[in-house]
Design a protein around this nucleic acid. Structure first.
Lengths: 87, 87
DNA sequence: GTACATTTGTTCGTATGTATA
DNA sequence: GTATACATACGAACAAATGTA
């Protein structure tokens, strides 16, 4: 429903693809589009939505996890943390 | 009971594994070894028989389904279509 | 009605190879 | 040569539908 025109990967950008996706997801979390306790799209969905490889998706998600923004459960998915770190 | 020497997966072939299995199953359907209305082997059985992963089995079966050769029912299995498309 | 095994559906985890800049 | 990105394949776990004891 919202404007997602800026949520796009640019393969020609100097910013690496995983970094671009991490930035996009971070903003969607911050905006509440991806709400605490709710799942983020699966790796498969993110691949399809952004037209990038699984490896790139995983690097982006790894990043968010290491930042404490999401939690990942094998066989289930990744979820936006309810109490994100203040850092 | 028949000769299945040619129904083997070659991991070193340039032809991808799912494509190889799809081809093998297609021939078994065409030959009547897998008859209309009858189930094809389960994913687990195909994995064991051919020594390949479930992902590869599923890609092969997906292919046959999209070709209209089989029908799949969750919790049951896949069945050779009685009236395969003329295409 | 319940519990269990089987089967397909989906997701994340890992390794390897290829192409390109 | 190195790093990025994509593709293929295998493995493991969770989930839902089916059938049976």
């Amino acid at each position: 429903v919202a404007d997602v025109a800026q949520d796009r990967i640019d393969p020609d950008s100097p910013e690496l693809i995983p970094a671009q996706l991490a930035r996009i997801l971070r903003r969607q979390i911050a905006s509440g589009k991806l709400a605490p306790g709710r799942p983020i799209p699966s790796e498969s969905a993110l691949m399809a939505e952004h037209g990038i490889s699984r490896g790139s998706v995983r690097r982006a998600v790894d990043r968010l996890r290491s930042e404490g923004l999401i939690l990942t459960v094998r066989g289930k998915g990744s979820y936006v943390r309810k109490r994100p770190p203040s850092t």
